[in-house]
Design a protein around this nucleic acid. Structure first.
Lengths: 334, 334
DNA sequence: CTGTTAGCGCATTCAC
DNA sequence: GTGAATGCGCTAACAG
């Protein structure tokens, strides 16, 4: 049985209020009693239980984290960063997975409220707009989505990616996204297009329409592939390598988000990393302010960072790298 | 303001206890009052708040999930499975990351207790023994670690891996682990060695000692590489592909855990998958039993499943696959 | 069968 | 400076 306030009070012959005062540092208590109490608290290993406190103060010290898909390889780093930031602020984190389903998302929210979460950090399902939450909430989505509180500068990330490749001399790019409905991916692609010089051509493929043959694209003239996720960049990279296309000598590949594997493949994957600790810290900080009754802070946009690794290099200068390329040139259109 | 029991009671002119009885289905209530109450509850959208209930019943409906490293690519699937299983049983999940640090692990445990967690599911830090928890706990580690409650059959997984490759005709294997201290990895390697036929040779590399040159190993005669994690298998695979070694024609590669990327690379990575839903369901089930006062259930070992993909194939039959191989044969020892 | 009462553990009044 | 009393929202035991 965990010791209660009452136990300590009885052992010391003081009242529970005094103990509470000592622990919270609020009411006036003599140094002597303070010392005595502190000692006893340490001795018995007393920790105020959350239930009583939550009931009395209305604050549970817990907030919810609602993710569309915990198993997405991007979220581990995110969840970790949030948990770390939350722990630093003395908060616990209740997780829920909406499985990309808006109904489940709503359900999860209700359950978190019921469990006493004081606020929530939510990464909304694609295409969902989080609105009128009965609870302070911090939304992490993309700069273009209404209600967003903090996110990476995906647009600038896209610009950085294209600029990087253009500086390496690439003039024929292939842009690969997964889903048009994802505002994050749209922002990234938008940024890429915005940075495009007039003498550079870019073709866009959406994987939801089917997977392209990356080797054929290279043989048709593409010299660089940018995927909106490292996962798809990895697919492209291994397809190319398996087909005998040298990376980065014959084609460069880059991705987004710096997944756990990106640094551990050969060649290392050049990628645009989100500053997860910064985003998480900002999210938790905003939430803490909201909980303290402050007005909603302005949305914060966190820069993305180019992580230069081996998968990108100078564009191939040979006008006819392989005979195969010439033969296939006319077959692939975009 | 969320409606409270008292609000409903007042509006209906009955007592709070009656409402509670209706909602819990316990005490005897007339059908008429029951109907009236149910209706009002729906109308006001009343949901019993967890704080009061937790204080009164001592059950918070929440348990803790303590992981050594949330950002490990294996845990997303795990956390998701646990969260799903927990939600199905009506539990919420509080997460904590011990960052592989035993002290932080203890700290996290204390915080979960303070927050009112009824029990915990813990994947202990490497080398840590979880013991004498002041709380019902389910430990997920490896069959060889004391106190383990449920885990995959890593040893059998190792045996399956080696058997698979032996059946494909491979006679020179390279086994790659990360850390000797990991009981999971030791079990896997142990299983591999146990399944080894007398005419098959296996060399073991531990990455904590430094990374091997996979292409050189193949040129020295290895025809198959088994890594204890898909992450390292991926490293091997891309190194080989980058060095012009065809997978699986010249060398087979396989891993463990079926990470998110494993099916999406080319060739697909043959791997041994853990049955996460099963493990998670068992863990939650055991925990629920413990919370109901049942004695500790016997440890459960869940089989691993071979996911056959393109990265493994028949051993190369050509005795002299490349001139280079002959030249290098003597240079690499193990 | 139903309603009243008491108290879970804590922080906060307000007397002393 | 300290302690006794109060009530947060809920449910289990007990009266009616």
């Amino acid at each position: 049985m965990q010791p209660k306030l009452k136990d300590i009070a009885r052992e010391l012959g003081v009242s529970t209020a005094t103990i509470s005062n000592v622990l919270s540092g609020k009411g006036r208590v003599s140094d002597e009693t303070r010392r005595l109490v502190s000692e006893k608290v340490r001795e018995l290993g007393y920790r105020p239980g959350g239930a009583g406190r939550a009931l009395r103060t209305g604050r549970s010290g817990v907030f919810g984290l609602v993710l569309p898909d915990i198993s997405n390889p991007l979220f581990p780093a995110f969840a970790q960063a949030i948990e770390t930031a939350a722990a630093r602020s003395g908060y616990g984190v209740l997780i829920a997975d909406s499985h990309g389903d808006p109904a489940a998302q709503t359900d999860a929210l209700l359950r978190m409220i019921q469990r006493g979460a004081e606020g929530i950090v939510i990464v909304p399902c694609r295409g969902t707009q989080v609105r009128d939450l009965p609870l302070p909430a911090v939304v992490i989505d993309s700069a273009s989505s209404p209600g967003n509180s903090v996110c990476s500068d995906h647009h600038a990330g896209g610009r950085l990616a294209v600029t990087h490749l253009q500086e390496l001399g690439h003039r024929r790019l292939t842009l690969v996204g997964q889903s048009r409905r994802s505002s994050v991916q749209s922002d990234r692609i938008g940024g890429m297009l915005a940075a495009l010089r007039s003498d550079v051509r870019a073709d866009i493929f959406w994987l939801e329409d089917g997977a392209p043959d990356f080797a054929a694209l290279v043989h048709a003239g593409t010299t660089a592939i940018i995927a909106t996720s490292d996962l798809h960049a990895l697919t492209a990279l291994t397809c190319l390598q398996g087909a005998g296309v040298a990376v980065p000598e014959q084609a460069s590949v880059m991705g987004f988000d710096d997944h756990s594997f990106s640094a551990r493949i050969s060649p290392g994957l050049t990628t645009l990393a989100q500053n997860m600790p910064e985003i998480a810290a900002t999210a938790v900080e905003h939430l803490a302010e909201l909980l303290d009754g402050a007005p909603r802070p302005a949305a914060r946009i966190v820069p993305m960072a180019l992580r230069l690794r081996g998968s990108t290099g100078p564009a191939p200068t040979d006008p006819h790298p392989t005979p195969y390329q010439e033969a296939q040139q006319g077959d692939v259109t975009s």
